[in-house]
Every structure is written in structure tokens, then in C-alpha cells.
């Protein structure tokens, strides 16, 4: 591990201070309205979210289920793009103190230019990046330097099908936290709550992850939508990520602040 990777930022500071119940909220940039991005981030901070993850919309988001796909389409129709997003985010650090993560797919980032993307992200005060279709090999051989140079943590995913050896490899390369996909699924596909066996095997998987004493903290994502699923995800890990359920809640909202307040109250109780 290089010294640069160990450099602290808001994200590492959060995990050094808090070990449990961390709530990471996802929303697509430019959704529900083109210029609601900042309002959503502020509402999430004000209502007690610990991390906010902003999705960069893409025409072909293969890891996402229908809810986030539709929010991507909506945001693109609204006119969202990477240059516009960086413009919207340029003053966030005047009011936003919680860690901010950008999540997106490789192609738009590649067209913008990865080095330029990392520099712009660092300039506006982004703490970490998630690019689910950038695999370890390409990250390590071509792109790692740009993230490290800009003190951006790079977050990798693991799934219930990921072998223990590969989890260790990922843990070595990952910084910030490990994004544990709760079941083998696209986003927003919840386990059937009546299926005890599925819940049991999911708990066993999260316990296994928790017991591996990984270097990175673990947040659980995919299918988390309410207090029981949040609490269950947090049992063996440091916290959870909520996306689709919140996107759904924002769909026809007349007040982002009020909807966000209600939503987070239902999660945290």
C-alpha cells in the first residue's frame, strides 16, 4: 500500500470515528430535476445521512435495476452531463460537510478524460469514486495513479459469489470502503422477505465478510429499503447504502426536504 492511499479525507475520518450504522444515501445527479442535485445533497445532510453518493447518469447502466435506470433516463432528458455536474458541485464545500462520492459508468468518464475527471472531482471536494464496470486489472495497470494523486478513494464491489481470495485482493486495492452487494442482483431488487432461507444465507455472507478482518470498512447495498433491512444489513458490517427506494420516494415529490426527512426517519426510526 502506498502512502498516498493512506491519506485521510472526510470518508476515512468518518470511518475512524464511527464503526456502526453508517447511512450512505444515493441519488442520481439531475434527478428529479436538473438543478435539484444540491438541494438533495443538502436535505440528506440535514436529515442525518452520513455519506451521499451521486450517480452520474448513463444511457446503458447495466448494473442497475429499473428504478435507477429510469432516474438515469430522466436525468439525461433533463440535460445532465459530467461538466454540468461539476459546475453544480463547485461550491458544495461551503455548506456540505459529509463525505461525497461519485458513482458512474466508465464510458462517460472515459470521454470526459479520467485524469481530468479525477482532478475536477478533487477540486470540488469529492472524496471517493465508484465505477462498477472498471475491473481491478484495468484499474491497477492504467488508472490507479490518477485517483491516488487526487486523494480520491476508489471503492470496489464484492458479491455473495466473490471468492474469499478475491475479496482479499479487492481489499488490498480498495480504499474508502468495500461495497458489499447484498445478493446477486441488479440494484433495487429486494430479497423476498418471506424467504427465510435467502435472508439466512445473506446474513451468513455478511457475517463472513465481517469476520474476515478486512482493512476496509464494509457498507452493504442493493435491496435496502426500510428500517428492518437497514438494521439487518448493519448487524455484521459498518452500515448500508440506499438508492432505489429513495429514488422512488423522490419521484413525484413536491418538497425534496420533507420527503427526505420522512424517508430517513423511516430508516433510522
Amino acid at each position: 500500500m502506498t502512502s498516498k492511499q493512506k491519506m485521510n479525507n472526510r470518508l476515512t475520518k468518518l470511518f475512524s470515528e464511527r464503526k456502526t450504522g453508517i447511512l450512505n444515501m444515493y441519488c442520481t445527479a439531475g434527478y428529479p430535476q436538473l438543478h435539484s442535485t444540491i438541494e438533495v445533497i443538502s436535505a440528506l445532510q440535514n436529515c442525518g445521512a452520513d455519506i451521499v453518493e451521486i450517480g452520474i447518469p448513463y444511457s446503458d447502466p447495466i448494473a442497475d435495476g429499473p428504478v435507477i435506470q429510469n432516474s438515469n433516463m430522466q436525468a439525461l432528458e433533463n440535460g445532465m452531463s459530467i461538466p454540468m455536474l461539476f459546475d453544480q458541485l463547485k461550491n458544495i464545500r461551503e455548506s456540505i460537510e459529509i463525505p461525497v462520492i461519485l458513482m458512474g459508468y466508465m464510458n462517460p468518464v472515459l470521454q470526459f478524460g479520467i485524469e481530468k475527471f479525477c482532478e475536477a472531482a478533487a477540486r470540488v471536494g469529492v472524496d471517493a469514486i465508484i465505477l462498477p464496470d472498471l475491473p481491478m486489472y484495468e484499474f491497477e495497470t492504467q488508472y490507479r495513479q490518477f485517483f491516488e494523486k487526487n486523494n480520491l478513494k476508489f471503492i470496489f464491489l464484492v458479491t455473495p459469489e466473490t471468492s474469499e481470495a478475491r475479496i482479499r485482493e479487492i481489499d488490498n486495492l480498495c480504499s474508502g470502503f468495500i461495497y458489499a452487494v447484498s445478493s446477486s442482483a441488479t440494484t433495487g431488487i429486494a430479497q423476498n422477505p418471506a424467504d427465510d432461507k435467502a435472508i439466512e444465507s445473506q446474513q451468513a455472507y455478511l457475517k463472513k465478510l465481517g469476520d474476515m478482518s478486512l482493512t476496509n470498512p464494509i457498507l452493504v447495498g442493493f435491496g435496502i429499503k426500510d428500517k428492518p433491512s437497514f438494521d439487518s444489513a448493519c448487524t455484521y458490517t459498518n452500515g448500508a447504502i440506499i438508492g432505489s427506494a429513495y429514488i422512488n420516494a423522490l419521484k413525484n415529490t413536491s418538497s425534496i426536504a420533507a420527503t427526505t426527512k420522512d424517508f430517513i426517519k423511516r430508516i433510522k426510526g
Partner: peptide, 11 residues
């Protein structure tokens, strides 16, 4: 070429 896939497809 390459294999630009999310971890869910890796196995």
C-alpha cells in the same frame, strides 16, 4: 477488448 464488467458478472 478487455472485460469491463461489474463484479456481479465476474464469477
Amino acid at each position: 477488448g478487455g472485460a469491463f464488467i461489474p463484479e456481479m458478472l465476474y464469477p
